[in-house]
Amino acid sequence: MPHTLVVGVHLVLIENGRVLLGRRADTAFAARHWHAPAGHLEAGESVLAGMAREADEELGITVREEDLDLVHTLHRLDADDGAGRLQLFLAPRAYTGTITNREPDKCAALRFWPLDRLPEPIVGYTADALAQIIAGRPLSVVGWPA
């Protein structure tokens, strides 16, 4: 039987050594934790189209698909439901517009944080991926049996 994956796309927006994170509101997933702007792919959508859509929906910025670079892939086994998740972290070379919080019901705050002083609490796999990105490692796996 083929393995089925949930695919998440995460925007890694780094400016002047600081990364943009959102503090999740009282949501079912990671309430009040800091996390990269992210979402899941929709049916029939490419990874690049999904990331461009999420950047617009969540932040009000326009990112062209051709301006996105894959900077990290994290293959995660979710301990809560046993599902495999492929978390793709994409960095834009450019964007237009002004960053605004367009989903205040899901995101309580947006803020740039120094890469060497990430906030707490932070979603664990987000912190893991950012550490791997800083170290120049393009792939990591989390939660899978050794």
Rank of each mutant, 00 (worst) to 15 (best):
D81K: 09
G136F: 13
I14Y: 05
L110C: 03
R18A: 13
L110E: 01
V123M: 08
L110R: 02
P104D: 06
A135T: 09
G82C: 06
H3M: 14
V63S: 00
R32V: 05
G84V: 11
I61L: 04
P138V: 11
G136M: 13
G22F: 10
V47E: 11
Q132A: 10
G143R: 04
Q87N: 01
L90Q: 06
A55Y: 02
I122S: 01
G136Y: 14
W34T: 00
I133L: 00
F89C: 03
R76V: 10
Q87M: 00
M51W: 00
Q87W: 00
R32P: 06
C107L: 13
Q87L: 02
I99L: 14
K106P: 00
R64N: 02
L13G: 02
H72R: 02
E42G: 12
D105V: 11
T62Q: 08
N101K: 04
A55I: 00
K106E: 11
D116K: 08
Q132L: 09
A31W: 09
R24F: 10
A127M: 07
T27P: 05
I133E: 00
R85T: 13
F89Q: 03
H10M: 05
K106G: 05
H10E: 04
A43R: 14
T96L: 03
E103Q: 14
L88Q: 02
P92S: 07
P92I: 07
P37D: 02
R111F: 05
H33C: 12
A127L: 11
D69M: 05
E42L: 15
A129Q: 00
G44Y: 12
L74E: 04
D81T: 12
A25E: 15
T27A: 04
D80F: 14
G44K: 10
A79V: 12
F89E: 00
V142N: 13
S140P: 05
D105A: 15
R137E: 03
D80A: 15
A79E: 14
D69G: 05
T126E: 01
V7P: 01
L130Y: 10
L5T: 09
A49Q: 11
T126D: 01
P121H: 05
V7L: 04
A108L: 08
L130R: 08
